[in-house]
Design a binder for these strands. Structure first.
Lengths: 168, 168
DNA sequence: CAGCGTCAGTTTCTTTTGGGAACTCACTGG
DNA sequence: CCAGTGAGTTCCCAAAAGAAACTGACGCTG
């Protein structure tokens, strides 16, 4: 299949997909995030093939979103745990969960989160870091950022110009 | 490869992955979200095979996150646009973008968003809908929600119990 | 102390998918 | 009237995923 790597692409979404861009990786990460930390437990929970799980855990460790922590030697056995980078990535899972809760379960969420700061069940919403108000797509328009590469993304540049014109 | 469908799974993340669980769909959705709305433009921008793009657009339309809007008949030509459900799904893309901005571009984001309400470049953060404070994984613990299925997810149930004990 | 179970992987074999590139149709603009 | 555009479709081949069995080093139990 000669899977295309997005490593060179000038797009943050593409780079993130280099880490979680397949059917299993996000679920593996979800399991680790809720405390299912061992190979066999993840495999039993998800039912994916052991081969694929091995590969996925390897790339997660390579990307430093997960660390292997030995909990015994001889034979070596490991816990998989999220790193700081992994915690940031888990925000993506949280967004996926919110979407699934709303559109696949009609609000009857299988798993909820209790916010330790206020001790209440929380449904995180995206808020503007400038004004504090909630942001939803449609409330904001895309612009070229400091890392935009005009050469690499001519089609994107064109689309951004059109939007800029429409909102001027 | 006999790809497993997650349609039956009792997990919001899995259900969301039924829609965007592969390498290309999120990028297709990103293009549509920033206004690249036609088949050829998306194909040129992403460089994916036309066959795969056709399939991805079909499943996006089936899941009702995208609509085909004819902009001419004879020959029929279409714009692809996000639905309301698609806008909700785009929140996942926004989360991916934030992760990529931070960890792959060191803050030099290729694309930024201007919040129309306050007219400033915004980096949305997740806030608790109860107390308004920012939420990050680690600031919250997972619990059984109203839609949790003990039979379907015994391994998850066990992990949740362990966490509950650890935080009691 | 023999044998079964656990854990973390490998290995082999088959089925499916994705990529590439060429082909199709129905216009449209010069 | 001839090239170009837009939206697909078709074909072949290589690479991934799935299933299921195998490995190896314990540790527990009768």
């Amino acid at each position: 299949m000669q899977r295309s790597s997005f490593g060179e692409q000038s797009c943050s979404v593409a780079r993130t997909l280099d880490v979680i861009g397949d059917r299993w990786t996000p679920l593996v990460l979800r399991d680790i995030a809720i405390g299912i930390s061992r190979f066999d437990a993840i495999q039993r929970d998800l039912g994916l093939s052991r081969k694929v799980l091995t590969q996925r855990l390897e790339t997660l460790v390579e990307h430093e979103v997960v660390v292997r922590v030995a909990y015994q030697d001889n034979p070596p056995r490991y816990d998989y745990r999220l790193t700081e980078k992994g915690n940031d990535l888990a925000m993506v899972l949280l967004a996926m969960q919110q979407f699934g809760d709303k559109w696949a379960f009609g609000g009857q969420a299988p798993i909820t989160w209790k916010h330790l700061a206020c001790d209440q069940v929380t449904a995180p919403v995206a808020c503007c870091d400038q004004c504090g108000e909630q942001v939803r797509p449609g409330d904001a328009i895309p612009l070229r950022g400091p890392g935009f590469d005009e050469q690499a993304s001519p089609v994107v540049g064109e689309a951004l110009d059109q939007i800029a014109v429409a909102f001027s």
